[in-house]
């Protein structure tokens, strides 16, 4: 059904089509206002704040100075950004590699099994991030089930803990994001025409080569978007690295918080945030450029 087919009936004006400009404007007003108030205005304030003059006692006064931006050109900030990116890319690689085949196999199951999986995945999303992170902390701690089991079979020294470290942060982030990514891939994969795979089979392709040479390339756009989704989420991760990581495993989000809450330098925190937004926009633009170029080559 096209949008033009959708009719809205009102007592005063009779039937109006969604395609009509004033109807469209009416429908878009509320979400448009929401985006302006909740995203554009804060973004503007953040830029303004990053250029403000820092006062003592965690205060600031309006101004236009680049003092805070100069602090971005330090090895510490470069290291934090580098680590955040590494964590985001590793998380994205693991999440997508696990989620894509999982979603593919779920879509190939019988309807009832698919529904059961979807309910399970949606159910897992109802758990609070705080709960999951602290559950991981318990699981990986010296007295935790996993550490205890590994100690019992001699794979871990007695009394050793499986956190805080990079694998602990990464595994918890993967756990948190995996259901989202599977649910993101599910609609696209369930709409994949089964005859496309059958056509490949009639031409001599095994199930594996059909998956690698037909399904994966056909879903390239969705995979790329899935990677970006995880990168964006992971880049801004706060609680997981704070609880399950050491300071070297802290992401830029923790440093923003520390600058604002700990050091009382709100303009610096705003400058960090602006840098992250610019970095993300550049990453998205680069990805789009690359996917367009590959599309043109194909």
């Amino acid at each position: 059904m096209t949008t033009a087919d959708v009719a809205i009936t009102s007592q005063a004006s009779g039937t109006r089509r969604i395609g009509e400009p004033w109807v469209l404007a009416g429908l878009l007003t509320a979400p448009g206002l929401y985006i302006i108030i909740m995203a554009v205005v804060p973004a503007f304030l953040m830029v303004q704040l990053s250029l403000a003059h820092r006062e003592v006692g965690g205060l600031w006064s309006p101004g236009f100075e680049l003092t805070q931006y100069r602090q971005l050109a330090t090895p510490l900030f470069a290291r934090v950004m580098g680590f955040s990116l590494l964590l985001a890319v590793a998380g994205a690689a693991i999440c997508v590699s696990l989620a894509f085949p999982a979603a593919y196999f779920i879509t190939r199951m019988k309807r009832r099994a698919q529904v059961a999986w979807l309910v399970f995945l949606l159910g897992s999303l109802s758990l609070s991030e705080v709960l999951i992170v602290f559950a991981f902390q318990v699981l990986l701690s010296t007295s935790g089930t996993l550490a205890g089991a590994l100690s019992a079979v001699g794979l871990l020294a007695p009394g050793a803990s499986l956190y805080p470290n990079f694998p602990a942060v990464l595994s918890c982030l993967v756990y948190l994001l995996l259901p989202y990514v599977i649910l993101y891939f599910y609609p696209a994969l369930s709409q994949l025409d089964p005859e496309v795979e059958q056509a490949a089979a009639t031409m001599g392709a095994s199930r594996f080569s059909t998956f690698t040479s037909v399904v994966l390339p056909m879903m390239r756009g969705q995979i790329l978007t899935g990677v970006l989704l995880v990168v964006i989420f992971t880049f801004g991760a706060y609680l997981t690295p704070l609880v399950l990581g050491r300071p070297p495993q802290w992401t830029v989000a923790i440093h923003i918080s520390n600058a604002a809450m700990g050091a009382g330098n709100v303009p610096l925190a705003a400058a960090y945030a602006v840098a992250v937004v610019v970095f993300m926009v550049a990453l998205l633009a680069l990805t789009r450029l690359l996917s367009r170029r590959r599309g043109a080559e194909a």
Binding site: D193, E195, V196, Q198, A199, A200, A201, T202, M203, G204, A205, S206, V214, P217, M218, R220, A298
Partner: peptide
Amino acid sequence: ANSRQFGMVFQSLALFPHLSVGENIAFA
């Protein structure tokens, strides 16, 4: 099916949209 390799034209045609005409034909 992949051992029989009977050429088949499907109702939906099932062409591979990510491949060019030549690549589709040369798939097998």
